[in-house]
Amino acid sequence: MAAKPRVAIFDFTGCEGCELNQLNFENQLLDMLGHVDIVEWREAMDDRPGEYDIAFVEGSLSTPDCIKRINEIRRRAKVLVAVGACAVQGGINSMKNTRPIEEVREEVYGKDKYLFPTLPALPLSSVVKVDVNVRGCPMTQIEFLKVFTALVMGKQPVEPTSAVCVECKLKENECVYERGMICLGPVTRGGCDAQCPSVGQYCTGCRGLVPEPNLKAMEDILVTHGLSVNEAWKRLHLYNSHELEGLKS
């Protein structure tokens, strides 16, 4: 690539933890900056220019203004990367989608609800074409680095599709089910190096469902282990309500 790729970083509705994680590449940040020109990053800088080669976008879309802005970003970006669970699959914000939006607004703002327009929380891909996904809540740093170098090389990054179980087995982690806890690992995409199960926690499903998830088999697993299917389903909705609502219909 002749000129350095121009990179822009944006955030929509979310916690900005993924952006913070990008600032947390302390050991790699200067090398990364050597390969690209960061041209827009509200959280870290003032400047606001025109076009860019790669746009990293965090957060889900939840207001009419978001929709306008993401279309504008898509128009100006050659490659659009969705970063983190909110941008990739709607994430935690999409939990509100399982209830009527008016009810939710009223519950929070009461009679003042009209002051604050809102929409169901959507992943970027339901409004614009997304070229690459970096999953996780927050985004997985090793994966972001891989995607980053791949894009600098001008190639399509490979998105992990196998379940978290693969990485647990590689790390020889005791199965979370053996520890008596619900774990969403069997139906959740890996690529995170099984971070949570490796430190004694259960998989919360933050990286989204595997392609063609066998949810019926997942129910059987829960029943066999004497765990609550209802509770597991609730947990699965934590990051994946948008996708699950889609599977329902």
Partner: peptide
């Protein structure tokens, strides 16, 4: 019907040797 397709059986098998190249 019972399988979630997670691939654990492959990954723990001592005679499975298939690999991908990255």
């Amino acid at each position: 019907q019972k399988c979630v397709g997670c691939g654990s059986c492959n990954i723990v098998c001592p005679t499975c040797y298939c690999f991908n190249v990255e």
